[in-house]
Structures are given as structure tokens and as C-alpha cells.
Design a protein around this nucleic acid. Structure first.
Length: 572
RNA sequence: UGGGGAGUCGCCAAGCGGCAAGGCUCCGGACUUUGGAUCCGGCAUUCGUAGGUUCGAAUCCUACCUCCCCAGCCA
């Protein structure tokens, strides 16, 4: 990842102009006011290393690390690695890289729930000794039956009243690997009739003879997430444990653990996760897209993963701005993808060098331009940033323009090139279309124009105006490139809410990727490096794909420019 | 039909008893050597519904409706 992002988020940060606090910041300030945590703010981002991070995680990352920055606190990075059968080192490496790329720093505070396995084991023994945990021999199916339903209370397991000594001995044997997987579990002894199902004697440990990516074969019992999470927060001195809504009714359980163990109690706060239109974010579905080759990998630019966004050309600062603009609340909603794109464009407009590139070339011959002559014009690199300077762009008799910039029979509102019409070639001359050359099928293959030498630079001394300025590239100097054009991966607005019997993969957009192999770009791009972002003038933002080699440039379309003409066409 | 949450403009989202912020989208218009950017202007007499309290309610009370989450030895 040849990526240098100098802009880091800061406490003064993303939107200093917003004095309004969301409910989380309100709570934190209340805690600071009453001194609940001694003015301390300590958060954490706790992913499970069983997949890649996506835009939904980005919101949590920005919130947790952002809060720490804002309140002069700290944020930890912690992997909730309690299920060895699903977790892999590859995922931890990529998750770490993604968080870093987003601009956040956990300094020396990288932790793993597996760091706490010994402590967790001791606490389990403590619970057993208090008569608050027991080894259950029921099968998984039986446990489910005994648990009751949403409307009916559960009933006690016949093993619920074993002696402390027996529980201790059995639990020890579980740890020693004396029992096969699934044969027994350790359960908390709380209340089988609780209206909150999480409190009906939840499983604390299960037997799993599996190799863990960090602890190897040291353990054959592994703590459940519910047993590990709250205590991990507690051990790290977390003050504000921010998570998503579905954990709201786990909070009483976490607090029960912490209260009966008598250890530091963080404040858990739940917020609504980020959902996006035209996007699927569940890990299961993302894995399916990758495994069944609907996309080219986790970092496919069509994926909503952080690595996909990076490859697509989304700047990390834009993602942060977007996430911050969506706000923090408790109501479930789905943000329109257009809002994300707005923030991507807003960032790119200020930061991307402009360049001329023709994606669907149409040959133009300037009939009155001297054969063999080459001129160089100065082109502005970024009108939004004068310090970006200028560059030279070569011009000659044969050019390429965009097919979309020419129409033989133009409708009223079409301002671009057409027979008899004059337009400006950006930074160069006015040209007028004199006639066209067609192939056997009647398609225009070449446009013959004349140029007005007095319009050099782009203005006519006689003051005449032109309705359009189009981009171009000199055929003799152009660099042929591959350009990958992306559209939504789905044909429907909400691939998460489908008619009965339909799967999200039934609505994959067959045109989500269009590869153009003969795009022609200006020669200054010849040395562009993977990860660099540009605005192809009048088209959109593009970034150099890592597939680029010394002999072949490959660009990804990040997002198009807003297109007034497209709107005119669409609305008739 | 248990428990836990949520309902304010097409989409996010402020609002915390004094008379509906802001952003995105959308629609006008100005400007323009990117039909980009920028700039101006428009866009909820109404806050899930129905009652009630109050001089006054999106904000308080009552009832109802709708949506989301929970019955993994997943996280």
C-alpha cells in the first residue's frame, strides 16, 4: 500500500463548527462533570479477526478513536479472538492496516482477548466457588430446549445444583482436555426464568480442541464472547464501552459479571450501526461475494470494505467526514450512498490533480493544422489549489476526444461538438466540425475539424463565445491505459430487504464492472504510481490501481463528477 | 401474546414546555476555459396515531400503531 496520508484526524478535527453533542458525548460530559471516571476517557475498538473491516466498522473506529482524541483520552485496539475456529492471523494483519490507514493510532495499546484467557479462567473458578457457575452435561439441543422461549420461562438443568467441588473438578478436566468437544459447558448460574434470555444461565466456556492463532494449543476450552468482552474492557480500564444496539440487552449480563466479580465497571453505550443503500455489509454475505467470485477479492473496489474503499480511491479523510456527518443516534436507518459520494467528491475536488484522459476515444483530425507540428500548452493542475502549479500538455494535428462529446444530430441542450459547431479544446484552440467520416455501418469513426489559430490559449480576440469546452489528448503522445468503471454491485436500492425466496446474489448488477482497455491519457500520467488519485477533467475521479505495471497503466473510477448533461438527458 | 430499543422533510439528524437547526438529495437561478467547483434562492403550519395536561407540547401524561433486536456450545 504505497499510501501516504498526511492529513490525520485531530481533536480540533473534523467538524469544529458543530457545538451540538450527540447522546454519547453528552453522557461523557456528564460523567466528566460528576467525576465518574475521574475525567478519564478510555475507549476501544474490538473487532473479531474473522473478516475484513467495512464502512460500518469505520463508523465505530472513528467514534471510538475520535472520542479519545476529543477528550484527551486513549483508545485501545483489541481483538475479540475467542473463537479459534473462525479467526485467522491474516485478518488481524489486515484489520490493523485498515485502522492505521483510516488515520488512527493505538500507540502501544494493541491487545487481544486471548491475552486474558488465564485471568478469565481464574474468574470462572471464582464464580464456581461462589456457587455462581456450574458445569452442565446437557447437549446443545437440550440446553436450547431448557432455555424456554421468548414467552415461556426456561427450566433448570438437572446439573445446576452440583457441588462446588464437583464443578471445580469437572471444569479442571474440561481445561485439561479430558472431554470431547461439545460434551460439556460451563454456565453462569443466574436465573432460568429471566425475561431477558441472556440471563438464563448463559454459557461461559465451551470445549474446543482447536488451534488458536495466538495461543496455539494451550487451551481446549474457550470463553464465550459474553464472558470475555466485559471483563476485557474492565481489565483495560475502559471507561466508555461503545457498541451497537443489539448488545443493549447483554448489558445487564456484563454488569452482573462485573458486579459479582467486584471489578472496574465501564459504561456501555449502544448506538445504531451504519447502513448504506445499495450495500450489503454483513460478514457472511461479504464472505460469499469473495468466495463465490462475484468480486475479485476483499479489496475489490466494489466491496464496501475499507480495503475496497482504499483501492477504489476513497480518501480516508473523506470517510471520516462522511461518518461524522451521519451522526450518532439510536434509531436504525440507512444512509443514501449519494451522501458518501458527496463527501468523497468534496475531498477529491480539493486534493486531486487534474489531468486530461479520454476513456472512449473518437479521432479528431485538425485539417488545417500543420502536419508534424507539436505545441505545448500550460495546464492548471488544480484550480482549487494554486500551489499545485501547472504542467505542459502536448497538442498536435490528430487528437482524441470523448465519443460522448460529439453528436451528429444533437438535441437542443447539447452544447458540445456537432457538424458546423465550434467548441473550445481545453487550454488549446477553438475548433469547428467541418465533416465526419463513417464506417460501413454508418458509425462516425473520425471527425474533421478546422482550428482558429487566433484562439490559441482558449479565447477569441473577436470576443466570440463558445458554449462548451471539451477535453482531449494528442494521439501521438497519448498513453493507452486500462480503465475500470464501477457501478453499484446491485440492481436494487436495498439488497438487504428482498422479496420472499430471493437472495441478495439474485440482484448482482452484471455491469458493476466495465473494463475499458483502450483509454487514452495524457503523457504526464506515464509515471503515475499505484494509489495516486486524479481528476480526469469533466469525467470523474480516478486512482491508479495496484495492478499497474511499467508497461500498463490501470485506473479505477472512484466516482464520477456530477453531470448536469446526464440529468438533462434523463429528464428529457 | 416475554424482554430490550426506535419512531421529527425523499435520506441522515438537531430539538430536553415557548412556538421545527444543519447536512445529503431534489428544484430554480447566477457565474464558469471542467454542463465540475463556487454562489444565491426554494423545499416539514408540522413532529407515528388518538386523547389529555398547560396560556402554550415534537418536547409532559395515557392508550394505541409501526419498525428493529434477543430463544448460537457465533461475535
Amino acid at each position: 500500500m504505497a499510501e501516504t496520508e498526511l492529513e490525520k484526524p485531530s481533536a480540533a478535527g473534523t467538524d469544529a463548527s458543530s457545538p451540538r453533542l450527540d447522546f454519547i458525548r453528552e453522557l461523557i460530559e456528564e460523567h466528566n462533570r460528576i467525576g465518574r471516571f475521574g475525567q478519564r476517557v478510555h475507549t476501544r475498538f474490538p473487532p473479531e479477526p474473522n473478516g475484513y473491516l467495512h464502512l460500518g466498522h469505520a463508523k465505530s473506529i472513528c467514534l471510538n478513536f475520535g472520542l479519545a482524541l476529543e477528550y484527551g483520552g486513549k483508545a485501545n485496539m483489541r481483538f475479540d479472538d475467542t473463537n479459534p475456529v473462525k479467526e485467522e492471523q491474516e485478518y488481524v494483519d489486515n484489520i490493523l492496516a485498515d485502522v492505521r490507514w483510516l488515520g488512527f493510532d493505538w500507540e502501544d495499546r494493541l491487545f487481544y482477548a486471548s491475552d486474558y484467557f488465564d485471568q478469565l479462567y481464574q474468574w470462572a473458578i471464582q464464580l464456581i466457588k461462589m456457587g455462581k457457575a456450574y458445569v452442565d452435561d446437557l447437549t446443545a439441543d437440550q440446553i436450547r430446549e431448557y432455555r424456554g422461549t421468548l414467552t415461556q420461562p426456561g427450566k433448570d438443568s438437572p446439573f445446576r445444583n452440583r457441588s462446588v467441588e464437583e464443578n471445580l473438578a469437572l471444569f479442571e478436566q474440561m481445561k485439561n482436555g479430558d472431554f470431547p468437544d461439545g460434551s460439556r459447558v460451563l454456565r453462569a448460574r443466574i436465573d432460568m426464568a429471566s425475561p431477558n434470555i441472556n440471563l438464563r444461565d448463559p454459557v461461559l466456556y465451551r470445549i474446543l480442541h482447536a488451534e488458536h492463532h495466538r495461543t496455539g494449543d494451550k487451551w481446549c476450552i474457550y470463553p464465550m464472547y459474553d464472558w470475555a468482552h466485559g471483563q476485557s474492557d474492565s481489565l483495560e480500564g475502559i471507561t466508555h464501552s461503545i457498541c451497537t444496539l443489539e448488545f443493549e440487552d447483554h448489558r445487564p449480563l456484563y454488569e452482573w459479571f462485573i458486579d459479582t466479580l467486584g471489578i472496574h465497571k465501564p459504561q456501555q453505550i449502544e448506538f445504531a450501526r451504519l447502513n448504506l443503500t445499495r450495500t450489503v455489509m454483513s460478514k457472511r454475505k461479504l464472505i460469499k461475494l469473495v468466495q463465490d467470485n462475484y468480486v475479485r477479492g476483499w479489496d475489490d473496489p466494489r466491496m464496501p470494505t475499507i480495503s475496497g474503499a482504499r483501492r477504489r480511491g476513497y480518501p480516508p479523510a473523506a470517510i471520516r467526514e462522511f461518518v461524522s456527518a451521519t451522526g450518532v443516534a439510536k434509531s436504525n436507518g440507512t444512509v443514501e450512498y449519494a451522501m458518501l459520494e458527496y463527501y468523497i467528491r468534496q475531498d477529491l475536488n480539493k486534493t486531486s490533480p487534474r489531468v486530461m484522459a479520454v476513456i472512449k476515444p473518437l479521432k479528431v483530425v485538425i485539417t488545417n493544422y500543420p502536419e508534424g507540428q507539436v505545441e505545448e500548452f500550460d495546464a492548471v493542475n488544480n484550480p482549487e489549489d494554486p500551489s499545485a502549479g501547472t504542467r505542459k500538455v502536448p497538442f498536435s494535428k490528430v487528437l482524441y476526444i470523448e465519443q460522448d462529446d460529439f453528436m451528429e444530430n444533437p438535441p437542443n441542450k447539447f452544447f458540445r461538438l456537432a457538424p458546423g459547431r465550434e467548441v473550445r479544446l481545453r487550454y488549446a484552440y477553438f475548433i469547428k466540425c467541418e465533416n465526419v467520416v463513417k464506417d460501413a455501418d454508418g458509425n462516425v469513426t473520425e471527425v474533421h475539424c478546422t482550428y482558429d489559430p487566433t484562439t490559441r490559449g482558449g479565447d477569441a480576440p473577436d470576443g466570440r463565445k463558445v458554449k462548451a469546452t471539451i477535453h482531449w489528448v494528442s494521439a501521438a503522445h497519448a498513453v493507452q491505459s486500462e480503465v475500470r468503471l464501477y457501478e453499484s454491485l446491485y440492481t436494487v436500492e436495498n439488497p438487504n430487504d428482498l422479496p420472499e425466496g430471493k437472495e441478495f446474489t439474485d440482484f448482482i448488477n452484471p455491469n458493476s464492472l466495465q473494463v475499458v482497455s483502450n483509454a487514452q491519457v495524457e503523457p504526464s500520467l506515464k509515471t503515475a504510481q499505484a494509489g495516486q488519485r486524479f481528476q480526469f477533467e469533466r469525467l470523474g475521479y480516478y486512482c491508479v490501481d495496484p495492478d499497474t505495471t511499467t508497461s500498463q497503466l490501470v485506473f479505477n473510477r472512484t466516482v464520477t463528477l456530477k453531470d448536469e448533461w446526464a440529468k438533462v438527458q434523463k429528464n428529457g
